Simulated assay, not measured.
Amino acid sequence: MPDTPHIVSDVMTYPVVAVRRDTRFKDIVRALAEGNVSAVPVVEADRRVVGVVSEADLLPKEEFRDRDLTRAEQLRRSSDLAKAGAVTAEEVMSVPAIMVRQDFTLAQAARIMAVEHVRRLPVVDDEGRLRAIVSRGDLLKVFLRPDEDIEEEVRRTVVSYLFPALSHTIHVSAHDGIVTLRGQVHDPSLAWVAERLVRAVEGVVDVEARLSGEEAASDRAGDA
Score class of each variant (00 low, 15 high):
V100N: 03
A45H: 13
H117V: 09
P188Y: 05
R71C: 07
L75D: 05
I98C: 02
I133K: 02
G35M: 10
V87E: 14
D10E: 11
E195D: 02
V50F: 08
R71F: 14
D103M: 05
H168Y: 11
V134Y: 03
Q184R: 12
E202A: 14
R145H: 04
V179M: 08
D22Y: 13
D187R: 07
I170G: 01
E91F: 13
T88M: 02
Q102A: 15
F143I: 13
R131K: 07
T13Q: 02
L190Q: 10
P41C: 01
A31H: 04
F64H: 03
D57R: 00
G85V: 06
D206Y: 06
S94E: 06
D126W: 15
A84L: 08
L197R: 03
E208Q: 12
L32K: 02
I133M: 14
L106M: 06
A191N: 02
L140M: 10
E153C: 07
L190A: 03
E127C: 04
R155I: 11
A132I: 10
E151T: 13
D126E: 15
R199T: 03
L59D: 00
G183V: 01
S212Y: 13
A86D: 01
A107Y: 05
D149Y: 07
A174Y: 08
R67G: 03
E153D: 14
P122V: 01
E202S: 12
A209P: 07
A86Q: 02
V201A: 08
H168Q: 15
K61P: 01
R210S: 03
V179F: 11
A39D: 06
A216Q: 05
A31V: 05
E44V: 03
D126L: 15
D147Q: 02
L190W: 04
A45D: 15
R21A: 12
A191R: 13
P60H: 05
A191P: 02
R65A: 15
V207G: 03
L139K: 02
E127D: 15
K141D: 04
